[in-house]
Design a protein around this nucleic acid. Structure first.
Length: 254
DNA sequence: ATGGTCGATAGTCGA
């Protein structure tokens, strides 16, 4: 089972990139973030032609997540049960006996921002929800744009980013508490190239200089880790014209 | 060079 995640930063703009990528890589499940589309404008028919069912949890202009799947998506959830949130950031479904969550974790903006408080509260509610899901589902995979670089090796310049948004101790601790539930960062289960990132700022030629962060993650439960065969970041779509600022991340399970 | 670029949208906000 191939599971992938991609923050597309507007599905309207990136639709042709997503279509091409689906046809080339044929994941079983693709989680999308920042679709920036209300559900009624989600191009479900386009994906259906490619053999993908889909579910959208969208809103206009901001946020928005979706799941595409070759097999039926069952028991869909669109909320964190313990966190009232008008922002559309969560989509969970069961596919072939695997519980899958696609997430767009709040950015947080800066440590002084109210959005940072919101981010940390949101992550705590996510922890509560994933604990409950693990009680019910041995096979759990949680993917998406976490807006947290787990470790300094996930940051192009750790000194410059020390204590900054995406890298602050509180954010990393919040992610750590989620991992302590019994989840594993699939990417780090394998030997990887150094300076491997999944997001590069549009400014200052950051991609060409590989000045990025690894903030797009695939987490998996113990049972899924035993099935995990590979995990990689596909930087190729970042080279295209009008790219998303994020690259897709792909994990293969037996 | 203390900015830079995108996307959604219609003057700015969010990333």
């Amino acid at each position: 089972m191939r599971i992938a995640t991609w923050n597309v930063n507007s599905l309207r703009v990136r639709l042709e990139h997503v279509i091409a990528w689906l046809n080339e890589h044929r994941p079983d499940v693709l989680a999308l973030q920042e679709t920036k589309l209300p559900d009624e404008q989600f191009p479900a028919d386009v994906f259906a032609e490619l053999g993908y069912r889909s579910v959208s949890n969208g809103q206009p202009a901001y946020n928005g997540v979706a799941l595409l799947s070759r097999e039926p998506l069952e028991d869909i959830v669109t909320e964190l049960d313990t966190f009232e949130d008008p922002q559309r950031r969560v989509l969970g479904a069961t596919v072939g006996g695997v519980r899958i969550y696609g997430l767009y974790v709040p950015n947080g903006q800066s440590l002084e921002s109210e959005k940072y408080v919101y981010k940390l509260q949101w992550l705590e509610a996510l922890r509560t929800q994933l604990a409950r899901e693990l009680d019910r589902h041995e096979r759990l995979v949680v993917v998406g744009d976490f807006n947290i670089a787990p470790e300094d090796r996930d940051v192009h310049d750790p000194a410059a980013w020390e204590g900054k948004i995406h890298c602050s101790p509180a954010e990393r601790a919040a992610l750590g508490r989620i991992l302590e539930l019994g989840l594993h960062d699939a990417f780090r289960e394998f030997e990887q190239p150094e300076r491997a990132f999944s997001w590069w700022d549009y400014r200052a030629a950051a991609f060409r200089r590989n000045l990025g962060l690894r903030i797009d993650l695939i987490l998996c439960s113990d049972a899924m880790r035993s099935l995990l065969r590979s995990c990689r970041i596909d930087v190729e779509p970042r080279r295209l014209d009008r790219p998303s600022d994020h690259a897709p991340v792909v994990a293969d399970f037996a």
